[in-house]
Structure formats: C-alpha cells, structure tokens
Design a protein around this nucleic acid. Structure first.
Lengths: 246, 246
DNA sequence: TAGTGGTCTAGACCACATA
DNA sequence: ATGTGGTCTAGACCACTAG
C-alpha cells in the first residue's frame, strides 16, 4: 500500500496515485482507444482490489488533466481529438469578430529530414535522428492566416505523407491519434512578436516586415514524452490568440 | 439539501457546491483575509451542518481555482499575491535564458479619467463612469521591457496615487489586495503582434515599427466581476510569453 | 501531544442514460 | 429496470506541523 521510496526523499505515494499510474500505463499501451469507454469504476475497483472511492479519485485527476472524460449515466471515456469541442484546447486563434471560423490546412511540404541540435533537444532525440518535416498554411474563412512548420520523430510517425495530410479531415492531432496511435495531452508554448520575412509575407498576402505572432510549441503525449515540435507564424490583424489565466 | 431551481431548467445543485458558494461569499466579504487560515474542515462542517467530506469537496474546488491554498498539517489559507510563488500565475514573460528576473515598475502617469465605450464594456461600467488610468513601464534586469496602460474602476480603487504605486514593493495585484481589498482571481487575455509606435519605441529603446507583443487583459475578482482592464506592449527579443496548454 | 489536512473504506442514495 | 457516474455520510487511520 506504500511506495518504497528507493533512494530519494521518502516520498509518500497514496494508493489512488498508484491506480492512476496504472490507468495511464493502460492508456499509453492502447488498452482502450480514444473515444471508447473504459471499464466502470466498480469493475476497476474489483480488478485492482480497492474501493470505488479510490478508483474515483484516480479517475478524477485524469479527467482534470483531460485524459479521460466522464459522462454521467454513460461511463468514462478516453479523450479524443475527434470531437470539435476538444479542438479549442490547442487551437487558440480566434477571429476578431464572430464565431470561431472553420479552417483548412494545405501542406506544401512533407518530407523526411534529420533532427538539428535544437529540434533534437526539444523532441528528446539525438542530432541526426530521423524526423518528418511538414510545412503548411492554415486558412481561416478562406484567408491564409498561419504558416506552420511541424517536426515529428520519424519512428512513431512512419508513413505520414502529404497525401495522408491532404486526405484527413479535422485537426492534425486527430490524425496523429487515428493513424499513429499517438495522443497529444499537453503542450508548452513560447510566444513572440516577429517581423514577417519575404517568404512568409508572400504566403500570407502581407507586406514584408508585418508583425506576426510567433508560436513555438512542444507537445507531449502520455508520460510527458515530447512528440511534436511546431513553429507557427500567425497574422493577428484579423485574429487574436486567446488565453485564460487561472 | 436541494436547490429549488426557481424558474430555469431544473438544474441540480449538489450540497458541496452550495457550501462552496457560501465560502466564496465569505471570501468576497472579507471574512478571512489573504494569507490567513480559514477555519478547519471539521469546524466548517459543524458550522454548516454537513459532513467533513462535503466541506472537503467544496474546498478542493476552491483550491483548484487558486482561491484557497491547502497546507497539510497547517490548515487552509486564503490565496495571496504576496507570495512570489503565486506571481507567475499572471506574469508570463520570461527571459530567453536564465531565471525569471526580478522586475521593477515605474509609473509615468496615474490620473482620474472617464471610461470610454470599450473600457466601459470590459469593466461592466457605463461610458463616462469614473476610472483610474495608469501608464507604466516594467523593467526587467534594468531594461525597459513592457509598456502598460491599466484602467481601474474609480470606486473600489479610490485613493490610488502615483505615490502609492511608487511606494509599493511587489506585484500590483498585491497592492490591490492589501490597499483596496480586491483579489484578482482570473483573467482573460488577447494576444497580438503589432508594430511599435514612436512613443512606445522610444520608451523601450527600440526602433519605431519593431514588432511587439500586444497583451490585452481583463482581470476578474470573486464572482467574475471585472475590475481591471490592461493593455500591454512587450518586447520579445529578450523575453518570451510562456504558455501551457493542458 | 494535539490539531490539521490527506487517504481509504463501506454503504446508502440520487441523477442520468439506455434498453 | 439496470447500469453508470455523482453525492453524502461516518469512521478509522495516516502524514505533516507545531507547541
């Protein structure tokens, strides 16, 4: 009932946190797929030999971290990027007026490459390791609004092609989830204001030197393993980046 | 034990949420001051005539929303902006390298004014209502890095002067808390990239037209009442705006 | 040693969805 | 009617802090 605390400070690990770790391991291992229901609390309690309340507390934390979604009367489900509701967790760009417009993406590049020093550090790879490099433009209401470069480790994403990108409908995280079994859980971002270079300005139909919002993102899957590095440049005259500080 | 559901949809309000509302009302009314301990769970349970578990769930939610801070063995405390640890909830600007530097603020302006249409809408006032207008520069490591305009409703902040701003050490939210009894709980922000105008460029020691991060913020106190409107321009060559998407 | 929050249990009952 | 999550209770015991 107690964690052994190997050689570090005598940290106490409550039971429900051990249960939580087991659940994350199952999620990571693909025991239950995104959108599917996990076993009921009573079922899990029996399986783990603990009370329902202990399972409940573990599930509560996972729901708070957006890995699970509870639905009263129906069950507890693995979170999925397939539902549009979940999309706005990672899509913060909103139009100045009106409802969050639909967007399309058009990839101009999707090729294998080798990780540079920086990307290797972000993705926890070695420099020279294989990666997949994507360049794309996001169109909001038909207008080119964001230019993005996405770098993924080659291994888990083997087989990602421009054709697959073009064929997919919905967010790219949904594609990661359905085609490559990789769930994005959280991300860290660094935001800056920068001047548009000639190429980016051209792609967005703006003058060279126009201020753009630079968004640098590292996204993580289960176990805080980094699996996507992204660099985006957004025009912010028609849109803004919304943020909530709690 | 049940909320009556007056004339709207028959929404169910659990007991612990009613307790939570009572606690928020007490906090809002200043029953316990920031940094002070609130009564123990057992004490509150007796006072409200519910079990400790029900109080616990209410307090759990308030702790998750950063209104209370639990400390095992010591008690539950009203959150305060006085502790440097809490500061980074609302201060997202980090230096490109090194530890989060200390900053100083210098107010160049602090005067009474009348709310314009936009500010009135943000602060839930009527156009023409009295406000306090502050303009200041934030210095990180001695370098001017942010130019900010802050607008506050005149009523709760009567008596805020440039002298008080200059005398205060620590974050301005700590000043709001100690001098005016107003706790900032959460905030909404809109981020954009804009070009520096001549005045701002001069204040920051940059060339006119330099891209700056524009941060528009509305901050709220208990009960989601807006009490601060802020417009900031940050240089992001030496710093960046960090964000965590969960 | 006493007081606080934190964990865990067992059980009763409620709200919600579905068949 | 059944099964799911959601609420509430009462009590035992643990972990942490402080006098």
């Amino acid at each position: 009932m107690r964690s052994a605390a190997p050689n570090t400070v005598p940290t106490f690990q409550p039971l429900y946190r051990q249960i939580k770790d087991l659940l994350v391991r199952s999620l990571d291992g693909g025991a239950w797929k995104p959108g599917q229901a996990i076993p009921s609390e009573l079922e899990l309690a029996g399986r783990f030999g603990v009370s329902q309340g202990t399972v409940r507390k573990a599930v509560d934390e996972l729901a708070a971290e957006n890995m699970l979604v509870r639905r009263q009367g129906k069950g507890t489900f693995v979170a999925t990027h397939g539902e549009p509701r979940q999309n706005f967790r990672f899509l913060r760009l909103m139009p100045n007026q009106g409802e969050p417009a639909q967007y399309e993406s058009r990839a101009s590049e999707c090729r294998r490459a080798r990780a540079g020093v920086d990307v290797a550090r972000f993705l926890d790879l070695k420099p020279g390791d294989g990666v997949i490099f994507i360049r794309r433009v996001l169109f909001f209401g038909g207008e080119p609004t964001v230019v993005e470069e996405i770098t993924l480790p080659a291994l888990p994403f083997k087989g990602l092609t421009a054709a697959k990108l073009a064929a997919h409908r919905g967010s790219i995280y949904h594609l990661y989830e359905t085609e490559f079994g990789t769930q994005m859980i959280r991300a860290d971002e660094k935001l800056r204001a920068v001047a548009a270079d000639a190429a980016t300005a051209g792609a967005l139909g703006l003058a060279k030197g126009t201020p753009l919002l630079s968004v640098e993102r590292v996204a993580y899957t289960y176990g805080d393993r980094p699996v996507e590095y992204r660099y985006g440049l957004c025009r912010t005259d028609t849109h803004f980046y919304r943020n909530e500080l709690g």
